[in-house]
């Protein structure tokens, strides 16, 4: 139980995917302008991360390892993620249109989100068991959402700030991200 909590919270806080591993920077900067789109994207990413882990873990250990094809990981994983995202999109569109309306728009963007491929590869690299992998994916997804939601609040303030012309837009956003990242450094050393 203790290991599970440590895995989850370290993926969420100390090793936050966005702010200390730099994965998923594009959606972090692109979709964090409003609170509702930030949380929508966060939920969609968490969902896809967990499902992608559930699919790629058995493929790696059940098909690739017995056949000594571990080096196909990258090709197989990215293809599985791309297909899976497509599947989820079609499924939601047909069966749960309400959920599709709120999450569907974020789904295509997730295929090229390096955090999703990152979490599946990290699970294999760290030698986690199936349960630990799923927990790690959950923590990573929640951490991603947390970073996006916090940052959307910071950006709202940034809109009204009086900043020099050259720094307007992307540079100011990046510097604000740097300050948010400093605040996450406070969590380091929380778990050993």
């Amino acid at each position: 139980m203790k290991t599970i909590l440590v895995i989850m919270f370290s993926a969420m806080l100390t090793d936050n995917f966005v702010l200390s591993k730099f994965m998923g920077i594009c959606p972090f900067l692109g979709v964090s302008k409003k609170l509702d789109s930030a949380s929508g994207m966060g939920i969609a990413v968490t969902f896809v991360m967990i499902c992608a882990t559930m699919v790629t873990y058995p493929i790696h250990h059940g098909i690739l390892v017995p056949n000594h094809l571990e080096y196909f990981d990258t090709v197989v994983f990215i293809l599985v993620i791309a297909l899976f995202v497509q599947l989820v999109e079609n499924f939601l569109k047909k069966c749960v249109p309400a959920l599709y309306k709120s999450l569907g728009v974020y789904l295509p963007l997730i295929t090229t989100n390096c955090a999703v491929l990152g979490v599946t590869v990290l699970n294999i690299d760290n030698g986690y068991s199936f349960g630990q992998s799923v927990i790690n994916a959950l923590g990573a997804g929640l951490g991603f959402m947390l970073a996006l939601v916090i940052f959307s609040g910071v950006r709202k303030k940034l809109e009204y700030a009086d900043i020099p012309e050259t720094f307007k837009g992307v540079p100011a956003t990046l510097i604000a991200a740097s300050i948010v990242s400093v605040s996450f450094m406070g969590f380091s050393g929380l778990f050993n």
């Binding site: 992307v170 956003t173 990046l174 510097i175 740097s178 300050i179």
Partner: peptide, 20 residues
């Protein structure tokens, strides 16, 4: 701080501002 994650965001922000 500059080789930590926070420094990465900061450096990139400043470099993009200079390029602008």
């Amino acid at each position: 701080l500059f080789i930590m994650p926070a420094g990465g965001f900061f450096t990139l922000g400043v470099i993009i501002a200079v390029v602008n």
